[in-house]
Design a protein around this nucleic acid. Sequence first.
DNA 1: TTCTTTATATGAACGGTGTTCATTCGGTGC
DNA 2: GCACCGAATGAACACCGTTCATATAAAGAA
Lengths: 243, 243
Amino acid sequence: MAKKSTSRGIVSRDEWAAQVAALTETPGASRPRREPLTAGRIVAAALELVEAEGFDELTMRRIAAALKASPGALYVHVRDKAELDDLMIGELCSRVTLPRPDPARWTEQAIDVCGQLRDQYLRYPGISRAALAAAPHSLHTLRLNEGMLAILLAGGASLRSAAWAADAAFLYVGAYSAVSLRRYPEEDAGEQAATRAEVVERLGMLPPDRFPITVAHAEELTSGEGHARFDFTLGLLFGGLTP
Amino acid sequence: MAKKSTSRGIVSRDEWAAQVAALTETPGASRPRREPLTAGRIVAAALELVEAEGFDELTMRRIAAALKASPGALYVHVRDKAELDDLMIGELCSRVTLPRPDPARWTEQAIDVCGQLRDQYLRYPGISRAALAAAPHSLHTLRLNEGMLAILLAGGASLRSAAWAADAAFLYVGAYSAVSLRRYPEEDAGEQAATRAEVVERLGMLPPDRFPITVAHAEELTSGEGHARFDFTLGLLFGGLTP
DNA sequence: TTCTTTATATGAACGGTGTTCATTCGGTGC
DNA sequence: GCACCGAATGAACACCGTTCATATAAAGAA
C-alpha cells in the first residue's frame, strides 16, 4: 500500500490531490465564499477521484482534500464510506437510459442496458467491487431492475425467470467489470499485468498430462476481443429464457 | 545491551519472562518449541480466521497474533496480503473434486463443480471478493478450469463456447457468493440485515406508476429458497451451449 | 441593530491497517 | 570454537476511517 514516499520534498498525497483538484476548479470566477458541502458534491468529487486514480485510491481524506475540506466535514453529509459507495453506485445506475420495451428486439435491449452499466463501471476502475458489496435495494438499482424486468417480460419470459435472470445479469456485469481491469490491459502499458501473449506462453508450459486442454488450446482459451465474452455470456443468459 | 546468561542452568531474563508469560497463555498444551512458520501454516491460520470472523476481519496482524508471531514475520513467507489472498483462493480451489466427464450427465457435473466452489466460498464469508480480485491464473484455478472445460467439451460444446462459459460460470459463482451473505440472512439474527419480509414491504411502498412490476410482484421478485437462483442461472448458462 | 440558536466545519486526536528494516536469534556447517 | 545465513522481532512509517470538543457561520427573534 505504502508505495509513495513523501520524504523527498514531494508533497503529501492529500496535498497533491488538493492541488490536482484545484486545476479543474472554475479558474475564472474566484468566489470568495466556498460552495457549501453537499452529498452530491462529495459524490462527484469521489467519482472524479476514482476515474483518475482507481477505486482503491479512493479515500475519505483524499476526497476531503479535493474539496478543500476537512475529513470530518464529510461525515456531516454522509454516514460512512459504505454509504458513499452506495451513493456512487446509485449515481452510475441513474445514468443508464432504459429503452421502451420492444418485444421484437428484447434481447438486444437487455444486453444494451447491461452494456451501459458495464461502461459506467469500467469508466471508474474498480468501482464495481463496491456494487457487489453495496445495498442492492437503492432506488436507482431498483429502477434499473424494473427496466430490465420490463424488457424481459416483453420478450415473453415468465416473471420468475425474468427476475432471476435480471439478478444474474447484473451480478455478472459487476463481476465482469471487476476483473476485466487486470485482463490483458490493452497492450500499451505492458509492464504491470501480463499481456495475452505472456499468458498463452505460460499456459503452454503446463504439464500436458494434467492440463491437456489448456495446453493444447491456450490460444483459443484466451480469445475474446473487446467485449465478445460479455455479449456471449449475456446471450446465453437471456437466450434460455424463451424456449 | 542485554547481557546473556553466563552460568549454566540459569536462563536469561528475557527467556525467563517468556516462560512466565507462557504459564498464563496456554496452560494445557505447553509446547516447548514453536513450529516453524510456513506459508501453509499462515494460509491455514488465515482461513481459520476468515471462517470464524469473516473476510474483512482478516488482518496480517491478527494472523500473526493467532500464530503467536510478529506481523513482520509473515512477510518472510508471503510477499503481501494480495499474495496471501491468492494462496487462500488456491487452497479453496484445490479442495474441489473434479468428476470424470460423463457426456450423459455433463450439465449436472458442471453445476456440481460450481456448487462445490460456492460452498467453499460460503464457508469463508466474504472470501470470494478476494477471488474476484485475485490472479486468475494460479495453478489451482487453472486445474479447476481444465476440469470444467473437460466436462463442457464432453457435453458437446465447442472449444470457444466451453472456454467462455466456464469463465462466466466461475465469475458468477464468485459474485453470487459475495452477495448471498447479505441477502436474507436465514431469518435468525433478524437485526442486522433486512429480512425478506421487510424487503417485500419496502418494495410495496414504491410509487406504482414508476415501479409497476416491482410493486405488483414484490413477493415473487424476492423468491428463491436456498440456491435455487444459483442453479437456475447455471442452468441458463450451460443450457445454451448445446442447441 | 444585537442576541440567540442551530447547523456546519475544523483540527486534533484514537485505534487500526499494511509494510519495511535494523537488529537479534537459532541453528548448521566448517 | 566460529562464521554464516535464514528466520523472527519490535519498532517504526505512512496511511486509513471515524469521532468529538471546539470554533465558525448563517438565520431568526428581539
